[in-house]
């Protein structure tokens, strides 16, 4: 079994269970076409925790985040952020919540017709009465935070994949959100920059008391940043608990995931050929 660097885990239960959850996901079901992607997800997330969502590729992690910011309407179930139902609330109500939510998309989703600085400054320019000069300073601050100082006037097309991710993170942080959703923030980054992102997340968590929800595959960063972890498998939550509980868990899928074991069933060649003919 691999040995993970130990981090003292504050007893989560005493620290946050007393308060109401800031995000409630209640029996969330969703389907694309005939295929059910999420099959009844129920999770409570608390203010000022870093919550990591794990799961293999294609299991619906991005889909879950898209529901959290109200981009998709669930086929059944509810998502409440600060008590507001993201699927059915009036637009004004939802926007009030979203202004204090930052979202880093898996594909960065920068506005390709705008410079990096315009991308980061856009929410400030549209939602606040700040002067352009102030917006510029705040934009610089956010770009410094993600290590992109000096790239103000670059177009997204001129950035590398990892730089796009970081620029998008700066944009997600522009409005100083209470809640930050990150879809694979360090995928495709070199280990040094990825570690930088992890430390940035820790800093945001400690200094700004943000609630941070991260989707990631990097087990090393999970053990560094997470307060609690949920593991999705085939559209359901198979595990949800603190890091210590994750390490102790005997659930076979949790063990397989943590020990990075491949799926076992290797079909014999005859059935495989038959399945190809189909």
């Amino acid at each position: 079994m691999p040995v993970y660097d130990q981090r003292t885990i504050t007893t989560f239960a005493t620290r946050t269970m007393a308060q109401n959850p800031i995000i409630q996901i209640i029996d969330l079901h969703t389907r694309y076409g005939g295929k059910e992607i999420l099959k009844g997800i129920t999770l409570d997330l608390y203010a000022n925790e870093t919550f990591v969502i794990l799961g293999r590729s294609g299991c619906g992690k991005s889909t879950l985040l898209r529901h959290l910011v109200g981009l998709e309407t669930p086929t059944a179930g509810h998502i409440l952020i600060k008590g507001v139902d993201m699927a059915s609330a009036a637009e004004a109500e939802r926007n009030r919540v979203l202004r204090k939510v930052g979202m880093l998309f898996q594909g960065a989703a920068l506005f390709n017709s705008m410079t990096v600085a315009e991308n980061v400054g856009l929410p400030l320019q549209e939602h606040t009465p700040l002067e352009p000069s102030t917006v510029k300073i705040m934009t610089r601050l956010k770009l410094d935070l993600v290590g992109l100082s000096g790239y103000d006037d670059f177009m997204p097309a001129q950035l590398s994949g990892g730089m796009k991710k970081r620029a998008a993170l700066a944009r997600a942080l522009a409005m100083d959100p209470d809640i930050l959703f990150c879809d694979e923030p360090s995928a495709g980054l070199d280990p040094i920059v990825a570690a930088g992102i992890d430390h940035l997340i820790l800093k945001l968590h400690k200094a700004f008391k943000m609630t941070i929800v991260v989707v990631t595959h990097e087990l090393a960063s999970v053990f560094l940043i997470a307060d609690r972890v949920a593991l999705l498998h085939e559209g359901s939550v198979v595990f949800c608990g603190t890091l210590a509980e994750l390490k102790r868990s005997e659930h076979p899928y949790v063990r397989q995931f943590l020990e990075r074991r491949p799926d076992e069933q290797v079909p014999d060649s005859e059935t495989y050929l038959k399945s190809l003919v189909g």
Partner: peptide, 25 residues
Amino acid sequence: AEIGSMKVAEELDALNAMALHPIRF
């Protein structure tokens, strides 16, 4: 073409997630 490529690159979703209405914007 412009709005279509924004849609494909999830830029319209990004606008929505920032509480900026793509139609108004």
